[in-house]
């Protein structure tokens, strides 16, 4: 078969064509890699605190006069703190005039901080021997219960629920829950806010009050109250609710807002401590007793809240159960 014939080159090309087409089809059919799933799950909101029997309003009676600073009874909790050379206090740094970080010098200041300093003064004779630990509102009770801090002085309202975890001192100030609204909104009462978004700190007593069905509010919560003010300033919430003392500090930072309405709830702030340290509770109560007697508690309130509140809160009366 030595003649000229186009069949073989033709067959070669045909085979190559089929192979080429086949590979092109296979490449085209291969599915591109699927992008990884980006679904996320959001944590459910924390359940509101369960009901509780009647709260105790009283605390443990001081054991006589305060020992001189630097000479705590051997073996006592105060002696341990003295030997450590610093008091560990759980505070807030975002509540203007109560417990806040002064941005110009980085120091913590406020009426709550003054209470901490009084305790430190009584133990060491030096109000500055304090290690401050800033706590989220929802962590306050647990921090005292697990011994992370010696004392919690953080606008800590006495409640029956928290009394299961911590021992409270006598109350050092009384407050009333109110609402902070933009001045231009014209809102004067919580009833006008039905169906609207109202913000407070997560795990606070005010959250429980706001969630009462009678108010019909859309409650928004953040770990700390100032975050609520950011939302208020951006118009994302209609109002912020907390105790009047705290709201006064917020209103002082934004002249376009004001504190309005009647008291939704009463609150009494006390120092929270570990239940297994009754000697420290009695000691702190003695410090507070001294503060009431010599007027230093009132002077502190006057210093920090005199400008904001028409009636400067008076130190709450002490009540003891023993």
């Amino acid at each position: 078969m030595n003649t000229v014939n186009a069949r073989r080159p033709f067959v070669y090309l045909c085979i190559a064509g089929v192979l080429a087409l086949g590979s092109a089809v296979i490449t085209g059919l291969t599915p591109p890699p699927a992008p990884p799933s980006t679904a996320t799950q959001e944590a459910p909101p924390p359940a509101p605190a369960a009901g509780c029997e009647q709260q105790k309003v009283d605390s443990l009676r001081p054991e006589g006069p305060l020992p001189p600073p630097g000479q705590m009874p051997p073996g006592s909790t105060m002696d341990t703190i003295l030997k450590r050379d610093r008091l560990i206090a759980g505070v807030d740094q975002g509540k203007y005039r109560l417990g806040f970080r002064n941005p110009t010098n980085g120091e913590l200041e406020g009426s709550d901080i003054d209470v901490v300093k009084m305790i430190a003064q009584a133990i060491f004779g030096d109000p500055n021997k304090v290690q401050y630990v800033v706590l989220n509102i929802a962590d306050r009770a647990q921090a005292a219960a697990d011994g992370r801090v010696d004392v919690v002085v953080n606008s800590f309202t006495v409640t029956c629920e928290r009394q299961k975890l911590v021992e409270f001192s006598t109350a050092y100030v009384a407050a009333a829950q109110k609402i902070l609204v933009p001045t231009a909104s014209g809102v004067t009462d919580v009833k006008q806010l039905a169906g609207q978004r109202v913000c407070t700190s997560r795990g606070s007593t005010t959250e429980v009050v706001l969630r009462k069905p009678e108010y019909n509010l859309d409650v928004v919560t953040y770990p700390n109250l100032p975050d609520c003010v950011l939302d208020l300033q951006r118009g994302r919430v209609a109002a912020v609710s907390s105790d009047d003392i705290i709201l006064a500090g917020l209103a002082a930072q934004d002249p376009q807002t004001r504190v309005v309405g009647g008291a939704l709830d009463e609150a009494r702030y006390a120092v929270g401590m570990n239940k297994s340290q009754p000697d420290l509770v009695r000691f702190v109560n003695a410090v507070l007793e001294k503060g009431r007697d010599d007027g230093s508690l009132l002077a502190s309130n006057q210093k920090w809240m005199g400008q904001q509140l028409q009636v400067v809160p008076r130190p709450a009366e002490a009540a003891y159960r023993d």
Partner: peptide, 25 residues
């Protein structure tokens, strides 16, 4: 480069095949 190589080799094979046969013929 599968497609290019397959086609190229086929063309080359055809060329070589025809060249050799022409030479013999």
């Amino acid at each position: 480069p599968f497609i290019v190589l397959v086609l190229g080799i086929a063309v080359l094979a055809g060329l070589v095949d025809v060249t050799l046969r022409e030479q013999r013929r």
